[in-house]
Write a protein that binds this DNA or RNA. Structure first.
Lengths: 219, 219
DNA sequence: CGGCGACCATACATGCTGTCTGGTCGCATC
DNA sequence: GATGCGACCAGACAGCATGTATGGTCGCCG
């Protein structure tokens, strides 16, 4: 047998410049999957659908990716990298909290709007695939870390959170965002309205972190 | 053909009392699924697994249920009915908010602890099945409605939420709960610790609803 | 020009779903 | 005590998806 297609590596490092980009088929597969995700849910998309949309053979698909999940993982990484820098105002710790927070939340909304299909897909799938699970949990941890840092940098907030697990508070706010953005992308009211989404998230974050403890409770 | 197994109805209404309970096989299937869910994730469980565990034939399975999802839906309904009354202190509107809230949150934790498999399963699957989707969204709406009612009954809270969509605030807190309980059941730290989970949730709810607006922000 | 690397079509083994066929058993009625 | 029907079972099937394997084409590079 001659056509052994190398043990594991992709289309081989040493290639100079005749084929269009480095690995065109791989990109075509990623693009096709991304496009399909814009209209259909991940688990209803088969490998057959992807290769048909990309105009690539089945063999090539499995040459570049071990499976559907790996394609999704790559798409998520790219989307999230792009979003990482959008959240920079909040993560960097500069600016006043309120302003930075609003920027971050707005950035999240935009990120989810632009990548609804891909992000919806991973949120629905990370529970059932080890690779995706690790990817998404790590992502959430990254955001959580940033928030923990901001909290710890502010003695006033630390005081108000007295006795609470700081990491848990930060994580809960991170996951609240994940959930609300997801619900918006999944057309669950009332979060389909961007302004409502942003205001609600903003309220929860500011009151949880910067709000005074409940004093009077009527009723 | 003689064994036509009636068009759609289950094992027939008119039955008096000779077979053990009304529909024993159906219960066996539900129990078996519930048991399997305690150790394995829903989408890794096949109909073959369920009928093997229940000691029921394939034909009978499809006689009682249109598919796996229907079994899960039934299990969720039962679990949730049981939890509904546990949340009664909060939903009824009696008691002072703080105490009622804590009862409700504790009740949720207990419900999730006792039904981790089933609830984890629906949270991971409601996105991909119309029946499950409707069931879970309705459930979340029920909780949201109760919270909306409590908010609207308290003019002081209404005042502090001025300009915000009340329903969105209530829904966000409901979904925050869903998420944190799920993460706990999925062994994602730090929510695996019940006390941390309850305290964090309590903090988020009380500050979002009953906390004063952020005044000073250091940093 | 010879070989190798990128690619393709096709076929296969496996596993799951949902449906269908035909048959067994027990009970209740005539 | 035969008969008939309802509850149940075993097994087979078509359809579809996955992941792997076979063998062959094409073009470039040395």
């Amino acid at each position: 047998m001659v056509c052994v297609m190398a043990p594991a590596r992709g289309p081989d490092a040493r290639r100079s410049g005749s084929n269009p980009p480095p690995t065109e088929l791989r990109e075509r597969l990623l693009d096709a999957t991304r496009d399909l995700l814009a209209h259909r849910r991940f688990d209803s998309i088969s490998v057959a659908d992807i290769i048909a949309a990309a105009g690539v053979s089945r063999a090539s698909f499995y040459f570049y990716f071990p499976g559907k999940q790996a394609v999704l993982a790559e798409l998520v990484r790219r989307a999230v990298d792009q979003g990482q820098q959008a959240a920079e105002p909040w993560t960097s710790g500069q600016q006043d909290p309120s302003r930075a927070l609003r920027s971050g939340i707005e950035a999240g909304a935009t990120l989810w709007k632009d990548n609804a299909g891909v992000l919806t897909a991973i949120v629905e799938s990370w529970g059932s695939d080890e690779q995706l699970r690790e990817l998404w949990l790590r992502q959430m941890e990254t955001f959580t870390d940033a928030t923990v840092a901001r909290i710890q940098a502010d003695p006033e907030v630390m005081r108000r959170l007295d006795g609470l697990d700081v990491r848990a508070v930060a994580a809960s706010l991170t996951w609240l965002g994940e959930r609300l953005y997801y619900l918006a992308a999944a057309n669950v009211p009332p979060f389909t309205d961007r302004d409502i989404l942003v205001d609600t998230l903003m309220h929860a974050w500011t009151h949880t972190l910067y709000g005074e403890s409940p004093g009077s409770t009527t009723a």
